[in-house]
Amino acid sequence: MGASGAQAARAETVIERAARTGAITVGARADLSPYSFRNDRGELVGYGVDVAQLVAAEVSRYLGRPVRAEFEPVGDPDALFRQVSNGEIALSCGAQFTWEREMFVDFSIPFSLSGIRILTRAQGLSGTAESLAGKRIAVVPGSLGERAMRDLRPQAIRVAVPGLKDGLAALGSARVDGVAGDSILLAGAARSAGSQGLTLVPEDPLVRYAVGCMMPENNSTFRNLVNLAIAQMIQGYVIDDPASTATVNRWLGPGGVLELPPELIKAYFQTVLLNHEQINVPTTR
């Protein structure tokens, strides 16, 4: 979309555009397991993809007409951020919250919690400053992982790689001792690659942050609907609603990409809901 298209996108709210076109444009990376990635059949799937579909359903109910999530693959995370910021893309789910980004886009309530850790197979590399002294750690330039290593673990030697997959390849060939990045994305990338014998350190992440959806600023009705869709899903998980439980567990819970204990997921979801009104979700939906 050119400059004139971006200006038109900003002049029209997301809800107005959805009412006119019957679609919400969703920007998605195709290599960020478990949030958005291509499966063996080439289909775009993931936790963020499922959340975007729930948002589209909520907007459909609000407008009283069908609205579909129209996915647009975007490979460059910086380009994705710019397109959301200028209104070319209405939604991106699986985004890491930072206060810097909040200056230019709006964020939903979170549907996941993550942090910066190091994926390694090295014995004795625990993630402490002492264990990382002189170790070669792969980082993606400009990422939160690079920032955390630079600011919190300067004893390590940072090795720039284009992406997490490249970092995993470097780890597999022993060119680096570890890969620093988002712990959920690292776990998803390792599982997708079939890597064995890897562990995430330290036990407590170097940095923690919420993960949710980002959208253009000044779209309060749309932001409310996005929050409602997420709140219904996480409240449903807390009360053991089958549909919500299946959605979350497919990616985070037992049998999913991360296989986190349901009690841990529920505890986090409850902390999110404490700051908002409880959503009554029928268990039969």
Results as ranks from 00 to 15, higher is better:
Ser195Gln: 13
Ser195Ile: 07
Gln196Met: 09
Gln196Asn: 05
Gln196Val: 14
Gly197Phe: 07
Leu198Arg: 00
Thr199Asn: 09
Leu200Arg: 03
Leu200Ile: 04
Val201Phe: 04
Val201Thr: 04
Val201Ile: 02
Pro202Tyr: 02
Pro202His: 06
Glu203Ala: 15
Glu203Gly: 14
Asp204Phe: 14
Asp204Cys: 09
Pro205Ala: 01
Leu206Trp: 01
Leu206Met: 11
Val207Trp: 06
Tyr209Phe: 08
Tyr209Lys: 06
Tyr209Asp: 11
Ala210Met: 13
Ala210Asn: 11
Gly212Phe: 13
Gly212Met: 13
Cys213Asn: 07
Met214Gly: 02
Met214Pro: 01
Met214Thr: 05
Pro216Trp: 13
Glu217Phe: 07
Glu217Gln: 13
Glu217Trp: 14
Asn218Tyr: 05
Asn218Ala: 11
Asn218Gly: 06
Asn219Phe: 02
Asn219Cys: 08
Ser220Trp: 02
Ser220Cys: 14
Thr221Gln: 02
Thr221Trp: 13
Thr221Lys: 02
Thr221Ser: 08
Phe222Lys: 02
Phe222Gly: 08
Phe222Arg: 02
Arg223Ser: 04
Asn224Val: 01
Leu225Ala: 08
Leu225Gln: 14
Val226Ile: 03
Val226Thr: 12
Val226Asn: 15
Asn227Pro: 05
Asn227Cys: 10
Ala229Ile: 10
Ala229Asn: 08
Ala229Glu: 05
Ala229Trp: 08
Ile230His: 06
Ala231Gly: 09
Gln232Gly: 11
Gln232Val: 02
Ile234Pro: 00
Gln235Tyr: 11
Gln235Ala: 04
Gly236Arg: 01
Val238Thr: 06
